[in-house]
């Protein structure tokens, strides 16, 4: 009996490793990248009129597919809710998670996920109607606040008011939609959630100009891609695809000029990134022109940002923390050498 149990355990363990190792080979054999995405989040993942996925996270899926398979269209999107995303990833039903996921200690260590850096620095903010005349979150003493229950934002809010010795009246809601309705109906003075969410919500108002997002950001929400523990090669690919797009912006490589630059330039770093010198792609187990294909598919980091959530879109987010490190932001990549 014991032997059977041991055998079964070993078999299960083997299966688990088989499922966890060699994601790159699996993806290549399948000819398709399975990308776990949000089932609907303004600016980050949504469907268009013909049922095609679009958004900030979707562009990263496309960049990954282009780098790995050479075709940004060979993606199977797997929409996941906040509760199911990690299970889907860990069970091997998806290859990579590009789904505005906050990197936290517990998720990284205890849930056994591998975070591959940060592609969007978010943080919790406040939105108020302009007519209140509030200029700073520190003036919010005694305000009623719409807050989604059971989220980290709820705890951050309590901390913030405690630290600043202010009182507030929580108006608990179940989701973003409910908070939005409450704020519009004047049932709460303030709405708090991630700053990107605030901007996206404000974009859906009839009169967005009558609402302001206060300058204070009270928490850290670094969002980034996630892979399974134990497949380092695949993790490297995801991390460096993300880095390549930041490096491209830094080096002035765009979707439009990447083809010309790939032929060779005077800048050795550009040449290494685009495969004109050395073979960085080969070290990842990819083709030499992996980065060229990714950039050609979706553009550099700045282009992805501006196209989906930037100031020219309805969501209208400033680069802020997500500007390049050379411009006062946090987006930074280790060198390509």
């Amino acid at each position: 009996m014991k032997r059977i149990v041991l055998g079964a355990t070993a078999a299960l363990a083997m299966m688990a490793t088989a499922a966890n190792a060699g994601t790159l080979d699996d993806v290549k054999a399948r000819g398709e990248l399975i990308c776990i995405v949000n089932s609907g989040f303004v600016g980050f993942a949504s469907t268009d009129a013909s049922g095609k996925w679009q958004g900030y996270d979707i562009d990263y899926c496309k960049a990954t597919a282009a780098a790995v398979l050479g075709d940004a269209g060979k993606i199977k999107y797997k929409p996941a809710t906040g509760k199911t995303r990690f299970t889907i990833l860990n069970s091997g039903e998806g290859d990579v998670l590009w789904r505005n996921t906050t990197w936290t200690f517990v998720r990284d260590v205890d849930v056994k996920l591998a975070f591959q850096g940060v592609n969007y620095y978010d943080g919790q903010g406040f939105m108020v109607p302009k007519k209140l005349g509030v200029k700073s979150a520190k003036e919010l003493d005694g305000a009623s606040v719409c807050i989604q229950t059971g989220t980290t934002t709820e705890l951050n809010l309590a901390d913030f008011f405690r630290v600043n010795k202010m009182k507030y009246e929580p108006v608990p809601t179940e989701n973003n939609e409910e908070s939005r309705t409450n704020l519009l109906a004047g049932r709460c003075d303030v709405y708090t959630t991630d700053a990107s969410g605030l901007a996206a919500t404000r974009a859906t108002f009839k009169d967005p100009e009558n609402y302001v997002i206060l300058p204070e950001i009270i928490s850290k929400e670094p969002l980034g891609p996630v892979t399974r523990h134990g497949d380092d090669n695949w993790s490297d690919i995801i991390r460096w695809v993300k880095n390549a797009l930041v490096a491209a912006e830094e080096l002035g490589i765009t979707q439009a000029n990447v083809a010309t630059m790939a032929k060779g330039t005077d800048n050795p770093e550009i040449n290494r990134l685009l495969g004109a010198e050395g073979n960085l792609g080969g070290m990842l187990g990819l083709e030499k022109d992996w980065a060229v294909r990714a950039i050609a598919a979706v553009g550099n980091y700045g282009e992805i940002f501006e196209r989906n959530i930037g100031t020219k879109t309805k969501i209208g987010l400033e680069r802020g923390l997500n500007a390049l490190w050379t411009k006062g932001g946090l987006q930074y990549t280790p060198p390509f050498r």
């Binding site: 989040f41 469907t47 939005r180 859906t204």
Partner: peptide, 17 residues
């Protein structure tokens, strides 16, 4: 329902729940 939610996230139309 899922298609509805995914469409609602389109910035072009968002807010028409």
């Amino acid at each position: 329902l899922g298609m509805g939610r995914a469409s609602l996230a389109d910035a072009k139309w968002a807010g028409l729940s």
